[in-house]
Structures are given as structure tokens and as C-alpha cells.
């Protein structure tokens, strides 16, 4: 039983590390800042969350489980907030989106941050 749990911990850790690596590859390979953010916010969160889960399984005490759960919850709460902030900042800098981008329903409207900030 203990061996089984140890195996589970190892598999979770490797799985989390693989997702971390995929997030990094995405940040290097994807075409523009906004698409890179998809890789970092999703794959990165899942990877880090899986690794924290394996920490929670590894240590016996309830206090470690509570702290790991708090860390995962914190990660899930902060990722969308920072992603939102980064997305707005990227758009506000007016850096051109990737040429393969389809429609841009924000550009030029009264809500366009590039325009709103200029006023």
C-alpha cells in the first residue's frame, strides 16, 4: 500500500513536470504574447497544481495537506487575476497581434484599452 502511494506520488510529480515543460515550450513556440499566455496560464497552473498535490500525498501530517491545499487554491485564484492584468497590459501596449489572428472585436471600439488610456 505504501509502495502504491509512493508510485502515485512519483507519477503525479512527473505528470506535473511534463505539463510545466509543455507550458515553457508553448511560451517559446507559440506566435504572439496572447497565445503564449494560454500555454503559461493553463498548462503552468495544472503542472504546478499536480506537483503540489504530490507534496500533499507525500507528507503524513494534516498541516501539510492543509498548506498544500491552500497553495493550490491560491494558485487557482491568482492565475486568472494575473492573466487578466497581463492581457490588458499586452493589449494596451498596442503591440500587433499575430498575423494569423482572426477577428478582433475589441479593436477600435470605445472599450479599446489602447484608446481608453489615451484619453
Amino acid at each position: 500500500m505504501a509502495d502504491l502511494i509512493q508510485a502515485l506520488i512519483g507519477i503525479l510529480a512527473v505528470g506535473g513536470a511534463v505539463f510545466c515543460l509543455i507550458a515553457a515550450i508553448g511560451v517559446v513556440r507559440l506566435p504572439d504574447a496572447l497565445t503564449r499566455m494560454h500555454a503559461s496560464s493553463k498548462a503552468g497552473t495544472l503542472g504546478c497544481g499536480l506537483i503540489l498535490l504530490s507534496v500533499a500525498l507525500f507528507f503524513p501530517g494534516i498541516d501539510v495537506v492543509a498548506r498544500a491545499a491552500a497553495a493550490i487554491l491560491f494558485l487557482l485564484l491568482t492565475t486568472p487575476v494575473s492573466a487578466h492584468m497581463i492581457g490588458r497590459a499586452i493589449y494596451a501596449t498596442g503591440a500587433p497581434l499575430w498575423k494569423g489572428t482572426g477577428v478582433d472585436e475589441l479593436k477600435g471600439t470605445q472599450d479599446d484599452p489602447a484608446r481608453r488610456l489615451g484619453q
Binding site: 515550450i25 494560454h38 493553463k42 498548462a43 497581434l97 494569423g100 489572428t101 482572426g102
Partner: peptide, 26 residues
């Protein structure tokens, strides 16, 4: 949904998933 989405993004990063076709949608 988080698992499903991370999987979809991961596949597309490695180059075996859907082609990337971004858009800004209201």
C-alpha cells in the same frame, strides 16, 4: 474543464492538436 483545456493546449503546443487560430471575441 481545466484538465480538458490543459490537454487541448498541450497537444496544440507540441503540434499534434488543432491549429492555432486566435481571435478576440466580444
Amino acid at each position: 474543464e481545466i484538465f480538458v483545456s490543459a490537454w487541448a493546449v498541450a497537444k496544440s503546443v507540441i503540434g499534434v492538436g488543432d491549429a492555432v487560430k486566435p481571435a478576440v471575441i466580444a
